Amino acid sequence: MLNNLRLHSVLWAVTGLLALVAAVTGVAVPGIYAGVVSSELVPGAFSQDLISIVASVGLISVALAGGREQAKGQIIALGLLGYLFYAFGIYVIERTYNGFYLVYLAIFSLSFWALIAAGASLQRDFRAPELPRSLRLISASGALLQPMIFYPLWIGMLLPLMSSGNQIDSLYSIFILDLCFIMPGFLLLAILAYRSRPLGMLLLPALYVLGFALIFSLALGELVKPLFGLDTNIQSFWTSLVLSVFFGVLGALHLLRLELTAGPGQPAQRAAHQRHTGSTSRR
Rank of each mutant, 00 (worst) to 15 (best):
R136F: 01
A71W: 05
F100K: 13
R127L: 15
I149W: 14
S109R: 07
I116Y: 12
S111K: 13
F88G: 02
G58Y: 08
G67H: 08
L84D: 14
F108G: 03
Y86C: 13
L131A: 07
R133H: 06
Q123I: 01
I116N: 10
R127W: 11
Y86W: 11
F100Q: 12
E94R: 12
T96G: 05
F108I: 08
G156K: 08
L122T: 01
S111C: 09
G79L: 10
A63G: 08
L102P: 09
S134A: 14
I51C: 12
G142H: 00
L64F: 15
G156H: 10
P129G: 01
F85G: 14
L50S: 05
I93R: 07
Y104V: 04
S139W: 08
G89L: 05
Y101R: 04
L144C: 12
A77M: 07
W113G: 02
G58P: 07
G156M: 02
F108Y: 15
I93V: 14
R136N: 03
L59A: 12
I75N: 04
A77L: 10
G99W: 03
K72Y: 06
G79V: 09
S61T: 15
Q123G: 03
P129K: 04
R133A: 03
F126C: 01
Q70T: 15
E130H: 03
L137C: 02
S111W: 15
L78C: 13
S109N: 12
T96E: 10
G89Q: 05
M148C: 07
S141E: 10
V92R: 09
T96Y: 10
W113R: 09
V92Y: 11
L144D: 00
